[in-house]
């Protein structure tokens, strides 16, 4: 009887602890047990200021993936690996652009889908890209009257 009480008490504690752990990992850590999988695309930018590993990739304001890796290639361009949810198909003439939320908010990558019937598959490259707009640059151009 006493022994059972002990076991129940410990069981309750461990249960609550695991629920808390699970909440953290699944809700916030985004571990997805039932993951439908994802595929990786590449995009080459002149400049990706503000994009980092984990940055969001959106289509029409809906998150569809995230940035996995950023490297630099022989042309000194930034090559961004993007993980896209496998349920989302991206037309091959889509445009990837670096955008900002709010004025000094975070950077994200927006994909504007094209009209092609051909879809990009794993390892392909998004050819059309728009680099980030550097506010400082814009401002200075404006201030020094180059626009």
């Amino acid at each position: 009887m006493k022994r059972e009480n002990l076991e129940i008490a410990v069981g309750i504690f461990v249960f609550i602890g695991i629920i808390a752990l699970g909440y953290l990992s699944f809700k916030l850590g985004k571990v997805n047990l039932f993951s439908t999988g994802a595929y990786t695309l590449y995009a080459e930018f002149d400049k990706v200021g503000g994009i980092k590993k984990g940055s969001i990739v959106e289509i029409a304001g809906v998150p569809v993936g995230s940035v996995e890796k950023i490297e630099i290639n022989e042309k000194y361009h930034a090559v961004v690996s993007i993980k896209i949810d496998s349920s989302i198909k991206i037309p091959e003439d889509s445009i990837a652009s670096v955008r900002t939320k709010g004025l000094i908010g975070e950077k994200y990558i927006q994909i504007t889908p094209g009209g092609s019937e051909q879809f990009l598959s794993k390892g392909d490259k998004i050819r059309e890209t728009e680099s980030s707009i550097d506010i400082e640059e814009v401002l200075s151009k404006y201030v020094f009257g180059k626009i």
């Binding site: 461990v14 609550i16 695991i18 808390a20 752990l21």
Partner: peptide, 13 residues
């Protein structure tokens, strides 16, 4: 070793 991570998770949540 068993309880600290669980307590910490509870604390976080």
């Amino acid at each position: 070793v068993i309880t600290f991570p669980l307590l910490t998770a509870i604390f976080d949540v």
